[in-house]
């Protein structure tokens, strides 16, 4: 399977790999997927309480190249966004940006799920 240059770049030079302190109130964590399915994504955001802006985003992903690239791209897009804007990130935008082949569309769906799960975790921690 031939992948796009952008995808290969995110795979070989993943952005924002790492772990944020999940015990902090300003950090939201989304863990989606299952090892049995071959994909697990963990996406974390740190949110500025006053502006509701995402100031930092980190990920770790167990999965194929498309899954890693999708989550790497997601962290890039999240930084600097208001959480309401971030809630609106659609998986098809990831598909387009990385030129994911049809069998890999589920990787982008997983990334969207991870974004939403991280935001919801932040919101529920802060009773928003």
């Amino acid at each position: 399977m031939a992948y796009s240059e952008k995808l290969m770049d995110h795979f070989h030079n993943p952005r924002n790999v790492g772990t944020l302190d999940k015990s902090k109130k300003t950090v939201g964590t989304g863990l989606v997927g299952a090892p049995e399915c071959g994909d697990v994504m963990r996406l974390q955001i740190e949110v500025d309480d006053l502006t509701q802006t995402i100031v930092d985003a980190k990920f770790k992903t167990f999965g194929c190249g498309s899954a890693i690239a999708s989550s790497s791209l997601a962290t890039e897009w999240l930084k600097g966004k208001n959480i309401n804007e971030a809630m609106g990130i659609d998986n098809m935008a990831i598909v387009e940006e990385l030129a994911l082949p049809p069998v890999k569309i589920h990787c982008s769906v997983l990334a969207e799920d991870a974004i939403k799960a991280a935001i919801k975790d932040y919101q529920s921690k802060n009773n928003i």
Binding site: P14, V17, T19, L31, P35, V40, M41, R42, K60, T61, F62, I68
Partner: peptide, 8 residues
């Protein structure tokens, strides 16, 4: 493994 949440 550095990238893997389940390894962590």
């Amino acid at each position: 493994r550095d990238l893997s949440p389940i390894w962590e």
